[in-house]
Amino acid sequence: MFIVDYIKDVYNGVTSLLKGMRLTGYYFVHPKEIITQEYPEVKQVLPERFKGEVVMRHNENNEHRCTGCTACELACPNATIKIVTKFDITPDGKKKKALDVFVYHLELCTMCNLCIVACPTDAIKMAQTFEHSVYDRTELTKVLNKPGSKLMDGVE
């Protein structure tokens, strides 16, 4: 029957629309379902594995574990890390290769974690920071070893 089909069409169409409206109406009257995080006031605690930027571990005596072996520099796909080495004179008078400046280009980094994996001495790690925006891109080029820091004893 044509007319029955017509009415059925209208009925099915209208019920499908009303069901949708009931769902949105449900969310309208249930503000508890809101999932908005109000960012600057409420800051999410990021998990410890979150890859925000590469930082170098320093202990309380301002000592790091980086020997300047450039394993991370070689592992990096984007030439994010530049390591400048110098020669230290050890107490027994020998020359020893050591880290001078650890340059890290945050603007080039894709947070792939390869440098952290490659590091044989566990000197660098990923920090959980994420607010990296700056006004000048040169600020994104960082030196990771703190001024005056030196190699931790016993790290080869």
Partner: peptide, 24 residues
């Protein structure tokens, strides 16, 4: 993803031979 792989979208979790880290 963030908890296990360390990133939300470009996770970089796969390495040749398995995955980069164990699950959280």
């Amino acid at each position: 993803m963030e908890e296990t792989c360390g990133a939300r979208l470009t996770m970089n979790y796969v390495v040749p031979g398995g995955v980069m880290a164990d699950i959280h």
